[in-house]
Simulated assay, not measured.
Amino acid sequence: SVRPDAYQRTALEAAVSNGRKSMGWILSDPRGYTQTASDMNARNEDFRRAAKIIKGWRRATKNRYADFAMKSFHIEQAVYAHFSSNPSTTIFDAVFEVMRSIPSLIRKAQFRDRANGRVFIDAYVESLETPQRDLIEEAADYFLMQLEQVKDEKGISSLFTGGRYRRPATEEFLFDKGIPTLVQSEMRIVAKALQGNGFPQKILDAVGWIAKSRHIEFRVREPAPECDYILWKVRNDNSSSQPRGEITKHHTQNDPERTAYFGRHYVEAYAILAGVCIARARQEVVLQTQHQAE
C-alpha cells in the first residue's frame, strides 16, 4: 500500500479545508446516494476529502476545456468504491489510486444503480467519442505528473490548473507502474561523457551541454539513498524522431547512452523503497549544434 508522507497528506488536507472554489462539494447525488456517502464519510473522513480533490481537478479541467465529459457523480462513485475496498485508506492513497484508474473508468460502464440493477449510472461513458476519452486521459496524466512534484501546500495549486499532457506512445511514468512519489531523501545523478571521437572525458554540469556522438554513463552519486533499486528514464526532445521516455531498472536502456539528436533532453533516476519513490534526480542533456562549442 502507499505510505503517504506527512507533508503531502497535510498539503492535501489543507487544500480541502481552505475551501477552494475549485473543490467545492458538488451536490449532484441522485436520491438515495447522499446518505450512502455520509455513512462512508462517518467511517473515514478522508472519503470526502479525496472526493473534493478529484472533483476540484474535474471542475478546473472543465472550465478550461468545454468538451471535458467526465461526470462529477461518476468520480464520487469511483472514490466510494475505492474506500469500500480499502476502508482504512488515506487521502493520498485514494487520490493517487482513483486518478490512476481514470482510463479504466471511462472504458466501459461499471457502477450499477442501487435502485435498478439493470441500469448503469455511468452508462454515458459508452457514448464518449475518441477525442473526449483522450482529453480525460491526458488531463489525468497531467494531474498525476503534478502530484509527483507536490512538496507542500503551495504546490497543491498545480493540481487545479486544468492542464493536459499528450505523451508519446513510448513514454512511461512511475504512476503507470503504481509507484507513488513521496520524496524523503536527496539524490543526484553523475553523468560521465566518456573519452572518444576526439573528445576528452568530462562530467556534465547541471546545464548539460554536450556534443553529438558522445557516449554518456549515468550513475547515482554516492552515497545513494537506501533503497531496493533505482529506476531510470530517458526522455528526448519532442522534436526528436525517437522521443523515448521508457523506464528501466538499474540503468538506462542503453548503457552508455549515445548522443544522437539535437535538442533538450533529460535523464531521471528514481530510488524505490517498498514500492514508493523516496528520492529522485534529474540531469539535463542539451545537444549542441555544429555552431556551438563544447
Results as ranks from 00 to 15, higher is better:
225 P>W: 00
286 V>T: 14
288 Q>P: 04
175 F>G: 04
275 G>Y: 05
217 E>R: 14
234 V>D: 05
290 Q>W: 15
256 P>M: 08
292 Q>I: 01
247 I>W: 08
232 W>A: 04
256 P>D: 00
239 S>W: 06
277 C>L: 14
283 Q>Y: 12
192 K>G: 07
248 T>A: 06
236 N>S: 13
173 F>H: 15
227 C>A: 13
223 P>N: 06
180 P>S: 08
213 S>I: 12
289 T>P: 06
211 A>D: 06
236 N>C: 07
198 G>A: 00
186 E>A: 00
210 I>V: 14
210 I>N: 03
285 V>C: 03
264 R>S: 14
234 V>M: 04
278 I>C: 09
245 G>P: 14
263 G>E: 05
255 D>N: 11
259 T>Y: 00
209 W>C: 12
259 T>I: 01
237 D>A: 12
279 A>D: 08
274 A>G: 12
194 L>M: 12
265 H>Q: 06
261 Y>I: 13
228 D>C: 12
181 T>R: 09
200 P>N: 15
209 W>I: 07
232 W>T: 03
269 A>T: 01
237 D>W: 08
222 E>F: 02
280 R>S: 11
201 Q>L: 00
280 R>T: 13
274 A>N: 15
209 W>Y: 13
187 M>G: 11
183 V>D: 08
193 A>V: 15
171 E>P: 03
182 L>G: 14
287 L>C: 09
232 W>V: 03
247 I>H: 07
216 I>F: 09
256 P>N: 09
280 R>P: 06
178 G>Q: 08
209 W>A: 06
234 V>P: 14
226 E>C: 10
293 A>P: 00
285 V>I: 15
220 V>W: 08
204 L>S: 04
215 H>G: 10
214 R>G: 02
213 S>N: 11
272 I>K: 02
270 Y>G: 00
265 H>K: 12
250 H>W: 15
243 P>R: 05
217 E>L: 14
188 R>C: 05
191 A>Q: 02
270 Y>A: 07
275 G>T: 03
268 E>D: 15
278 I>Q: 02
211 A>E: 11
174 L>G: 06
237 D>F: 05
210 I>L: 02
220 V>Y: 05
228 D>F: 04
240 S>V: 01
239 S>N: 11
255 D>S: 11
285 V>M: 09
234 V>H: 05
265 H>A: 08
279 A>F: 02
265 H>G: 10
205 D>M: 03
193 A>E: 11
286 V>H: 05
187 M>A: 03
201 Q>D: 01
202 K>C: 01
207 V>Q: 11
243 P>G: 00
223 P>A: 09
253 Q>G: 12
229 Y>D: 01
207 V>R: 12
270 Y>Q: 06
214 R>M: 01
203 I>L: 07
174 L>A: 03
265 H>V: 10
264 R>P: 13
268 E>L: 15
230 I>K: 09
270 Y>F: 09
212 K>Q: 10
218 F>E: 00
278 I>D: 02
293 A>S: 12
270 Y>H: 10
288 Q>T: 07
260 A>V: 01
229 Y>F: 15
205 D>A: 04
